[in-house]
Design a protein around this nucleic acid. Structure first.
Length: 536
RNA sequence: GCGGGUGUAGCUCAAUGGUAGAGCGGCGGCUUCCCAAGCCGCUGACGUGGGUUCGAUUCCCAUCACCCGCUCCA
């Protein structure tokens, strides 16, 4: 399947539009049209229902170490800036970078250093990515090469002062980049604000800077105590949240896959440290199965454990659920969801302050004066087991899914071109979205075969009877074949058609999207028939 | 961020230094008893901003967006 055809269908049938298209579009932002909003809503609702509302906390689900509770939360997108300092996002997302036009490499501005040198009446700054003694040798070597000197002519280089940071250099036109052979190839330092910055308060200045959340998870961690105190939930339990998050992706690309505004479906599952490995295994498998159950094919979906080197400094295990999107090279997969064992990193961070790994231990990061780099809340976020009277900091398993990525995967999986006979029985090309019935934006369409002989009246009755229960669509325009094809393109699983026989015996035909098969049922049984076929 | 490509109607594609044409679609009508049929009519576009020119959709520059490759990626 060509991605362009899916993108074209999404636009033509109202699934996805480029954001602000009338103004030429905005990179990394997308709008869901009338069909798209239903599809994405169905994805979200399937997730919420399956993970939260239909979960029975009295039973032990297959594969789970024990019974557990699930509850929900909906946090503000904007939170106290300290949240992001302690979570580590602030430091991670705030780098000044310089790019080299020649080497195509990108450097952290604060990590590049170098020395001034004069030779042949020409004063240049020789930059290096490394520091210390190594940098002295490197810059010497680079300067020799640049001025075309032989080893014995090293004395011709007149070094001007010690190794200094690139940030002391005003003008890059006389700067030799770390991997460049010519001068002036470095761009101005640019701040990479991977978090969206804004101002809280109408008169707010720099000190009122706040951030749009780059993930929903932190809202759950900082509300952990509130949830415990207000709901009587007992460990093990999970808190689920669906909501928008924002990241300034450097390269938004591949349709909605890497968007700057996106929606997450996250669970933070809190458990006793000693049972956390089993819970990690449980969620890993459960979340993988969820995508299979909603129609993603086993061939295109995989569960991949991260290598040790790939793990974040705080994670004791992470697995990605990945889909072979058609825009990726064959054999490549894109992340739909990450299931991470995060230990007690997050709750501890919000108690003690930003943590770093030191000698295999997570310790509070200190500044130059030996004080915490970012102070935590100071609140006790530990958990007291009221039965055993044990107090501990729960460990966290985090299944974090992308709602837009899941929606895109379901669209890709559903897109299908096959052949259907036309009115002369000749096979013609048909485009159909074979959505799982739970995800289909429209569950059924109702047609009169022709717009006369009282058929529209009966069809409208059926439509009105279905409308309160299911998302249905009525159409009486043009030939019935065309109407079927239109429904195929938006993935409607069933069409109900009123014909001449309906007027005689009260039966209607039901037509199946995937098989094109038709059968008759009494017109009064449409709702029951659809409910059983849709399994809803 | 870099390099290459693309940008004309809702979609697919034409033509042109003198203000754009088709097919499909959509809408209305006629016809039509099961898979994009037929007939009639209607609808509708040069991504944006500059420049050159008497005149630019066409040439030039910039910009925005998309695609491909590289880079980056919590």
């Amino acid at each position: 399947m060509e991605m362009e055809q899916l993108v074209a269908l999404c636009k033509r049938r109202g699934f996805l539009f480029q954001s602000s298209e009338v103004y030429g579009g905005l990179q990394g932002f997308w709008d869901y049209g009338p069909m798209g909003v239903e599809l994405k809503r169905n994805v979200r609702e399937a997730w919420w229902r399956d993970m939260v509302t239909s979960h029975n906390e009295l039973d032990v689900p297959p594969g789970a170490p024990s019974a557990f509770e699930m509850t929900g939360l909906d946090c503000a997108i904007i939170m106290h800036p300290q949240v992001w300092k302690c979570s580590g996002h602030y430091d991670l997302f705030h780098d000044y970078m310089v790019d080299c036009r020649e080497s195509k490499r990108r450097y952290r501005y604060d990590q590049v250093c170098g020395r001034w040198v004069t030779c042949k009446s020409h004063r240049i700054f020789v930059a290096s990515e490394v520091g210390g003694k190594e940098a002295e040798e490197l810059t010497q070597h680079k300067a020799m090469k640049f001025f075309d000197l032989r080893a014995k002519d090293a004395a011709a280089l007149d070094w001007d002062g010690p190794l200094v940071s690139l940030s002391t250099v005003r003008d890059f036109s006389q700067t030799l980049g770390p991997d460049a052979k010519t001068l002036g190839t470095l761009t101005e330092p640019r701040e990479f604000n991977l978090m969206f910055k804004t101002i809280a308060g109408a008169l707010g200045g720099e000190e009122d800077t706040v951030f749009l959340r780059p993930e929903t998870a932190q809202g759950i961690f900082v509300n952990f105590k509130n949830v415990c105190d207000s709901t009587r939930v007992k460990i093990p339990f999970g808190i689920a949240q669906i909501g928008k998050s924002f990241r300034n992706e450097i390269t938004p690309r591949n349709f909605t896959f890497r968007s700057r505004e996106f929606e997450q479906m996250e669970i933070e599952f809190f458990c006793r440290p000693e049972t956390s490995p089993q819970w990690y295994q449980y969620w890993r498998g459960r979340r993988y199965q969820w995508y299979l159950d909603l129609g993603l094919s086993r061939e295109r979906l995989r569960l991949r454990d991260h290598e040790k080197e790939e793990l974040s400094h705080y994670s004791c295990g992470t697995a990605d659920i990945e889909y072979a999107f058609p825009f990726l090279a064959s054999g490549e997969f894109g992340e739909l969801e990450g299931v991470a064992h995060r230990g007690d990193f997050d709750l501890r961070s919000h108690m003690e302050g930003k943590l770093v790994r030191q000698d295999g231990q997570l310790v509070v990061e200190l500044d130059g004066e030996g004080k915490p780099r970012y102070r935590g809340s100071g609140k006790d976020l530990s958990y007291l087991d009221e039965v055993t009277k044990e107090r501990f900091i729960p460990h966290v398993i985090e299944p974090s899914a992308g709602a837009d990525r899941a929606t895109l995967a379901f669209l890709c999986e559903a897109y299908c071109e096959d052949e259907a006979p036309d009115e002369h029985g000749k096979p013609t090309r048909r485009v159909v979205l074979k959505f799982h019935p739970r995800l289909a934006p429209i569950k059924a369409a109702v047609f009169p075969l022709v717009k006369k002989d009282g058929m529209p009246e009966v069809a409208r009755e059926i439509y009105a009877a279905l409308k309160p229960h299911l998302t249905v669509f009525y159409d009486e325009k043009s030939a019935v074949g065309r109407r079927y094809r239109r429904q195929d393109e938006i993935g409607t699983p069933f069409c109900i058609t009123v014909d001449g026989q309906t007027l005689q015996d009260g039966t209607v035909t039901v037509r199946d999207r995937d098989t094109l098969r038709q059968w008759r049922i009494p017109k009064g049984e449409c709702l029951a028939e659809l409910r059983s076929r849709l399994a809803m």
